[in-house]
Design a binder for these strands. Structure first.
Lengths: 153, 153
DNA sequence: GTTAATGCAAACGGTTTGCAGGGGT
DNA sequence: ACCCCTGCAAACCGTTTGCATTAAC
């Protein structure tokens, strides 16, 4: 995914979103936003903090936490509670699912529109109103199967 | 679910499992096991501790944590990372999925064999070997829709 | 100029760990 | 009798919060 470059359009959208929400577009928020848009994985607050530290050495970890919470409320990221150690953030806003490698712990996005569009059986509907469905696959990813992950570390 | 009563058979199975694993069947482990079998919800370590405290006032919270970890390794419970605050434990060992009410946070078990048996599209298989699939529905449950949950607290 | 956001440091809450005493095999 | 398991307390670690300073509007 070549989302490495952030368009001026995206920044303009953020500016407008902040304006609508009545919050300030600070330097830190902009930089965290850029870092999120550039991420092709599912970063934690700490990993965003670490990546950002080179460019913004004065940024504080709790600012990253607060900003990610703000972005979550704005709908710019989604929290992922996959493992318990730390919360991961999903920057991919399109409907998708996740494959979690039990070996290297990497989380990969999975698309399955056939499933997204299928209707649910009565038994599911009977428990309440379903607003979203999310699928979690567990297994071993291709690179771990090929033994690539054994070499690292 | 009338799993409130524990059969002698279940206890015998636990005794055997412990013997096979080479660990002791202590009083605490037995009582925690009973509490888990009696639970019809998805308890946290702390809620098991609280429930047990009436019968076993001397038990320590960390013993509950250690025992639940042991039971997880034995395959008697499964950890659920649904919200980030605390780990929940699933005592239902048959294949099922979860409905999480965004209002009252209750987790309900969902059965959908049609989905469990369906084959996955190529796109999914291509990321690696899928060992299990778990579905998470988010929405509002029946009792919250009926306004029942609004009255509490 | 006002008000909200940041950085710092300390608190917080769930979970883990080291250790000495106690209970199961 | 041996060794594992428990209870206690303290550590741990990700995350949150209170407060004074700083920067966006």
């Amino acid at each position: 995914m070549d989302t490495a470059t952030i368009t001026k359009q995206q920044i303009e959208q953020l500016r407008q979103l902040c304006a609508e929400a009545g919050i300030k577009l600070t330097h830190q928020r902009l930089e965290i936003f850029k870092e999120l848009m550039a991420a092709d994985d599912h970063p934690s607050a700490e990993s965003i903090y670490t990546r950002l530290h080179k460019k913004l050495p004065t940024i504080a970890l709790d600012t990253v936490y607060r900003t990610l919470a703000t972005f979550d409320e704005l709908g710019l990221v989604k929290k992922l509670h996959i493992m318990n150690e730390r919360t991961l953030f999903d920057t991919n806003l399109s409907i998708h699912h996740h494959f979690i490698c039990s070996h290297c712990k990497k989380v990969e996005d999975i698309y399955w529109q056939g499933f997204d569009n299928c209707s649910l059986p009565e038994e599911v509907e009977s428990v309440g109103v379903v607003e979203s469905r999310h699928l979690e696959f567990h297994g071993v990813c291709r690179s771990c199967l090929d033994g690539a992950a054994d070499k690292e570390k």
